[in-house]
Design a protein around this nucleic acid. Structure first.
Lengths: 145, 145
DNA sequence: CGACACATGCAATACAGTTGCATATAAAGA
DNA sequence: TCTTTATATGCAACTGTATTGCATGTGTCG
């Protein structure tokens, strides 16, 4: 998603020590073009250098809490994680393939949503808008003829 | 959501025997103005007449599979369930309070989304669009001053 | 060097949902 | 009515995902 970001600085900017594991988790999320599950992240990191899965969960919680990573729900059981929107990366909807579990990012313009008028009359506080399309991706369509 | 629906007939129309438990599950979902979790549904039903939670899960799976109930994800761990859109009930976004877990239905016009142009160029199959706002509801805002 | 804060690991636990198999119930036919 | 058959339900055990408690490791400041 963002080979231009300085992840070390990003961590520091939200008040987190840039430990090796935090950097590793943030890099794998940031360098990927689609969101990953916690176990995707753990498995990948664990192969190159052992890391406990609890550590991964705790780091993900931290990054989400600090607002630099987004937790994206899937309709399946596991949450997925991607870089949070910022100046360089607009918020965007996702497509989730209910057959293979792959989640893809869609263009920010794909759904052309307009909700500022609604937000201005809503009595609660709105932190986040999540839009997700569910269906079958083209690869899985092909497999089933 | 729909005190006008004949739930018995709705079950039959999708090819399901209208057993007592299926009716009870569908009624509690249909008569509620906001989506409920599986355990909400089980707890409520169990109070009036004992029912196994596995039975509730299986009935929910059936109703979702047949397309008369929608499984709505929350950002939390548990799925919520509401009547699926039909002629009488338009699809609509939801608001999820991350503090108390209450999920509310929003007006179908709230987000004013337009995606038919996108859908017509998408190479996969799209089954469902889910839109969810996360935040703090007005009651929880009040509690925390 | 010593003390402290905090990052990480490990084991146990919690939570939501699923599976296998036994039993109950209801519809269909003799 | 009785028997057969299909399927709905219950119960116990299990799975995958995430969380908690506590012990240990690591890095920083005096």
């Amino acid at each position: 998603m963002c080979i231009h970001c300085d992840y070390k600085e990003l961590l520091v900017s939200v008040g987190l020590d840039p430990t090796r594991n935090r950097l590793r988790v943030l890099e794998i999320i940031g360098n990927n073009s689609f969101p990953l599950s916690a176990s995707d992240i753990h498995d990948t990191l664990d192969r190159s250098r052992p890391i406990n899965r609890v550590t991964v969960y705790r780091i993900l919680d931290l990054l989400v809490e600090k607002g630099i990573v987004d937790r994206i729900s899937t309709g399946g059981r596991a949450a997925y994680y991607g870089l949070a929107p910022n100046e360089r990366h607009q918020a965007h909807p996702h497509f989730y393939c209910t057959s293979c579990g792959q989640m893809d990012c869609l263009s920010p313009q794909a759904l052309n949503v307009e909700f500022s008028r609604f937000a201005s009359t809503f009595p609660g506080r709105i932190d986040k808008l999540e839009m997700r399309l569910d269906g079958i991706c083209k690869n899985c369509l092909k497999k089933s003829h």
